[in-house]
Write a protein that binds this DNA or RNA. Structure first.
Lengths: 208, 208
DNA sequence: CAGGCTATCGACACCGTGTCGAGAAAGTCG
DNA sequence: CGACTTTCTCGACACGGTGTCGATAGCCTG
């Protein structure tokens, strides 16, 4: 249970397709209703296997979410890697960075909402999310420090703490927007608002 | 189901104490483990009644959460009412306002975390939360506008959108802190950090 | 072809939920 | 006081979803 193999048993199978089919099936079902309302039965049916066969590939529904999380995180990291460092247009750089999250999470809205919810219950999910979001927090914090050294950012007492808060804001704002909650931002204004708050918090002005 | 009577049957009973006992029992149990791991059995036992008797007072575990939510919201509103309007120390005013949330939510950490999670699943909970947090968003937005009219706040394109984002940040930061997530703020630094981000976002400087 | 792996299935036991109808306790009115 | 109604409690039931097990089928490899 504590080993690194996550659900899957064997070593070099060809039924990788089935595994992917399961993950895809769950993502499809999540478009319609929350995870709690989805029975393993239905996921299995969506992947064209029996319920018991499902348990051959994953230990539980929740375990499938880990795969979904990995997919999304990989997309985000890929997007971030293509941006580089902030040059002479820091506001544009921050906006682009936030845009990666908006785009990737937006492309998988149902998954984002589900992950945010399930994280509270599933310890493995929480740990994995913590690891990944910790990296983004680090990246944000070190960039703030660098911008401060350059004399562009305002004086911030604890850059890392501020970074935690800003990233928390993004997460919650995105999830609320995707979930269609009532006091929430419209999908098309999310990026503008977040970028504005980030830049003002970091530089003291929205356009440094 | 769509009537306003939430679970309870009769009209003028004396078993109100039982109802409160149930709510208290759940809050106590939530200190230890998440809602999903708590059976109705145990809540009933905590209130010294049988499981079936529980269903006389509430339709489900989740219905008890609504009561818990109402309690917390009442405390917050009470705290906010005691603050008044921002006078000549706007930074202090914002800090006090945020402090109310930090204090009340902090006094009911387990409940806060549970509500944040259950909101995704329970429609009634989501609606009620939306209604309440919508009021706080309105309050924030109108105060920002007033501060702008006074010439103190910076020029903000969409005060309400900014208000949504800032309130979202608070919520997520508090829950993450209470839940002990890894990239999270320590309980004692939460207020400082949040107040700093709020004031900088609104005024362009942490101490207007 | 024998043996070991991957993969699939049906059947089973378990647990929590929500509902129902039968009553006990207490309060009300003739 | 006794008959009734209301408030409240309980045990028993059916249902549905979960996770596990052992049997077995296909397949590659030596």
């Amino acid at each position: 249970m504590s080993t690194t193999t996550r659900g899957r048993r064997g070593a070099r199978p060809s039924g990788d397709d089935r595994q992917r089919a399961i993950v895809d099936a769950l993502e499809g079902l999540l478009q319609t209703r929350p995870l709690a309302d989805i029975a393993v039965d239905e996921i299995a049916a969506g992947a064209a296997i029996s319920r018991s066969a499902f348990y051959f590939y994953f230990v539980s529904k929740q375990a499938v979410l880990l795969e979904l999380l990995d997919r999304m995180v990989a997309e985000v990291d890929e997007g971030l890697a293509g941006i580089g460092l902030p040059g002479d247009d820091p506001a544009g750089w921050w906006r682009s960075s936030i845009g990666v999250f908006v785009d990737v999470f937006g492309a998988h809205r149902a998954v984002s909402v589900t992950l945010a919810e399930a994280r509270a219950t599933v310890p493995e999910l929480r740990d994995e999310w913590a690891r990944r979001s910790g990296r983004w927090v680090d990246l944000t914090a070190s960039t703030i420090v660098a911008e401060r050294r350059r004399g562009r950012a305002r004086e911030i007492v604890d850059p890392r703490a501020t970074s935690v808060a800003l990233n928390a804001m993004n997460e919650r704002v995105l999830v609320a927007s995707f979930a269609g909650e009532q006091p929430a931002l419209a999908p098309d204004e999310v990026l503008d608002v977040l970028a504005d708050v980030w830049c003002t918090t970091i530089y003291g002005t929205p356009r440094p």
